[in-house]
Design a protein around this nucleic acid. Structure first.
Lengths: 234, 234
DNA sequence: CATTTCGATGAACATGCTGTATTTGGTCGG
DNA sequence: CCGACCAAATACAGCATGTTCATCGAAATG
């Protein structure tokens, strides 16, 4: 059904019909840059569409008009609707600060990494809330509506949380009776976009409050009563 | 845009054109029963469609074929696609055991109500996982794609959790420094479908394990260290 | 400047889905 | 059996996605 990114391009018939292959070497400098610009303009347009009307279906027509390109251009660049949203996900993954979050949990003190990871996570979720909501919901309703980006993104988070859980276990921070596996499950829950959005959108709480609530909840659910009076300094 | 359940029905032109109103009394016995049966067959078909292909878009055509009715019949009965899914939500609300869950949290011991409420909740979520996933995701993507059922359902849960939070506070069960408001927020999170599904589908955990994990997490996040050694008996 | 190459474009077309209008066929009451 | 009535089927209109194609214009190359 879908051949993403595989846009068949046939040699123009007005070229040499004798079967001679194109032998000229081309170093695209300006053209590649222009192509990247239109690509970016389209991605920004989708982003803008999702922000302006979060609970409406985004049509290719609106995106094209907002990006000031033709509708067919979107298809030549991204292949399909799914390819477009897949690229949007990849774009968020690189530019949205997802990598910072990974770094936050990797600091030596695992318990501190828990709090910093959650707050960093929440900050990132809050910055792109509407877009992420659309991406995640689309992924739930239609498996390949957004390509594999959401899956990849969540796989990374799962691995990171399992790592953190193990380090919490190794450092003796987990409360009695809680295995590293269960700790991973709970971290998976507390660092999820859904957990953030349930509190942020569902209860109209500002991002900072959500971060504090989630961090406290996670710490109490996971860790033994703290030896040091508090973790953030109060 | 939508006039759900309001299907305009015009008198056929071959009836008396002299303006005489229909005076015959009609007691529909067989026909009304048959109509209810087709209505139910359609609802069951949607349910079945969502179960068989959870991550595919459900088309009216598939539903009609599965219910062995014509596609137009769905429109005469439910008015629109949104009306159909709205009715499905209402059907789940009445037949899915949502009311049992409300009763569970209303028992005298609030702390026991927390655990029983969560386990009952999880059991219900697990029984209808695929259908609920579709309903919730659709509600997120398109505001009025499922009518107001999801909104009403969640409003009820919010109220119930705030009540429970206040009773936990009044019974002195909350840990120091946690307000009844914050407790309500956390209960809202721990009794959500998303929290269940993150663990059940996202981590491949059976429903019982999810219930135990969520109940323990909620108890540790909300309550003071238990005076009685344990709540469930372990 | 001439020629090649490629991104962008708009139109045309096919498809699939939602929603509506009209007709058909069977059931009810007399 | 007839006429009133209504659920169900058929046919049709509208809209969005996705594909194809001829063409334009600008960049790259000589």
């Amino acid at each position: 059904m879908n051949m993403l990114y595989l846009v068949g391009r046939i040699v123009k018939p007005n070229a040499r019909l004798t079967g001679m292959p194109p032998t000229r070497k081309y170093e695209q400098r300006l053209r590649a840059k222009a192509a990247d610009q239109t690509r970016r303009r389209i991605l920004d347009a989708v982003y803008q569409c999702l922000i302006e009307a979060p609970s409406e279906q985004v049509g290719m027509d609106k995106v094209a008009k907002l990006a000031e390109v033709s509708r067919s251009t979107i298809y030549t660049v991204f292949g399909s609707r799914a390819g477009l949203f897949d690229a949007l996900g990849m774009d968020l993954l690189h530019r949205g600060g997802f990598t910072d979050m990974v770094g936050a949990v990797l600091q030596p003190d695992a318990r501190r990494g828990l709090r910093d990871g959650i707050t960093g996570n929440v900050r990132m979720y809050a910055a792109h809330r509407d877009v992420l909501r659309a991406l995640f919901s689309m992924a739930h309703l239609d498996a390949d509506a957004v390509g594999g980006t959401v899956r990849r993104l969540e796989d990374g988070r799962a691995q990171g949380m399992d790592d953190l859980a193990r380090r919490l276990h190794d450092q003796g921070a987990l409360r009695d009776g809680l295995t590293a596996g269960d700790a991973g499950h709970l971290l998976w829950l507390h660092t999820s976009f859904d957990a953030f959005d349930l509190l942020h959108s569902g209860r109209s709480l500002p991002a900072d409050t959500v971060a504090a609530l989630l961090a406290d909840a996670a710490e109490h659910a996971l860790c033994r009563p703290s030896d040091t009076p508090s973790s953030t300094g109060g």
